[in-house]
């Protein structure tokens, strides 16, 4: 139990540091966070930029003469209340944007992770079992090449081949605009079809990297004494492969699995932008492009929370599945 208390304390400390980091970073960015809003106000109402700035400041609840500490206090107290801030560009609360974009991101990420992890584990273990054969050579070489392709290039490729040329995949969005969202089979199948492009762009390089890690871990485990001892006891190869090799080789990967989900939350900005897919990454990219500092801070905080939580979950999962962690 001590283990979990320690981890929880650790989580809280990391969280406080990360949140402060986000705040300092965004506050030290050049330019006024209200400037974007002020420009649009000035254009709409045909007034001077100084006046518009004042209005914008009031709208966003910012006092430019306030000290950084008071602003920090407000930021933290808002966060503790679950308020991620205000988006000037979309003229709505960041919470609302998160509420509508997070599900899409999680949907694509979990699909991509599930697919890439299962296939990668299988391929990696298979390659390691076929050590020093052509099959292993092919799997390893192809994986190394695919792993090196950045997801956004793959995204452009998929978009070009499947959406523009072959026209089997939609061009963008989470679902067709002319269909009302419902739980009908047609709508659900459309959702999957629309998610397929970004999902593949994320999953394929991921799969290659799982394959390579699993192959490495597996061949390392296969050298262990307990494998030879299992063979000496006359255990069947299939039992050894599953219980002795795969289970031990997978352990470190399960931990990185949770962490990779956390990182993907913020790391798919380019893929989601290319597919016009309304996930967290898409809004994150938009926030940078239009200098919407409020949205940027909010999403940044969310991503940081995601990564920390994922690391935390990874630790928990690791302690659950590996007896060596809990007991020490």
């Amino acid at each position: 139990m001590n283990y979990f208390i320690n981890k929880t304390l650790y989580l809280l400390i990391v969280f406080a540091i990360a949140i402060s980091g986000v705040f300092v970073l965004v506050n030290n960015m050049p330019g006024d966070p209200a400037y974007g809003l002020a420009v649009s106000i000035a254009q709409q109402r045909n007034m001077q930029i100084e006046q518009a700035l004042e209005i914008a400041h009031k709208m966003m609840g910012i006092d430019p003469h306030e000290s950084i500490f008071i602003r920090y206090g407000k930021f933290v107290s808002n966060l503790l209340k679950g308020n991620f801030g205000y988006s000037a560009f979309y003229n709505t609360s960041v919470n609302e944007i998160i509420a509508k974009s997070l599900p899409w991101s999680l949907f694509v990420i979990s699909l991509a992770t599930f697919l890439s992890f299962t296939i990668g584990i299988f391929l990696g273990a298979f390659a390691a079992q076929k050590r020093d054969t052509i099959i292993e050579g092919i799997i390893s070489t192809v994986s190394s090449i695919i792993q090196a392709i950045p997801p956004f290039i793959l995204a452009v490729l998929i978009l070009f081949v499947f959406s523009v040329r072959l026209k089997v995949l939609p061009l963008g969005g989470a679902y067709p605009v002319d269909i009302e969202p419902s739980f009908s089979l047609e709508f659900i199948s459309k959702i999957f079809l629309h998610a397929l492009g970004p999902m593949l762009a994320i999953a394929i390089p991921q799969m290659a990297s799982w394959t390579l890690s699993m192959r490495g871990n597996t061949s390392q485990i296969m050298e262990e004494d307990f494998i030879r001892f299992a063979e000496a006891r006359g255990l069947r190869d299939s039992v050894i492969a599953a219980k002795y090799v795969r289970n031990n080789a997978m352990l470190p990967l399960v931990a990185s699995l949770a962490i990779s989900v956390g990182y993907m939350l913020g790391g798919q900005t380019l893929v989601e932008s290319i597919f016009n897919y309304p996930g967290i990454g898409f809004y994150f990219g938009k926030a940078i492009a239009v200098r919407d500092f409020g949205l940027l801070t909010g999403l940044f905080t969310l991503i940081v929370i995601g990564v920390i939580l994922a690391t935390f979950i990874a630790d928990f999962v690791y302690a659950l599945i590996d007896p060596r962690v809990k007991l020490k």
Binding site: F226, L251, P323
Partner: peptide, 16 residues
Amino acid sequence: IALVPQAAQQSLNPTM
């Protein structure tokens, strides 16, 4: 015929 190997310290599966 049973063979008990030399490396007794690493001969058991650590996760079982």
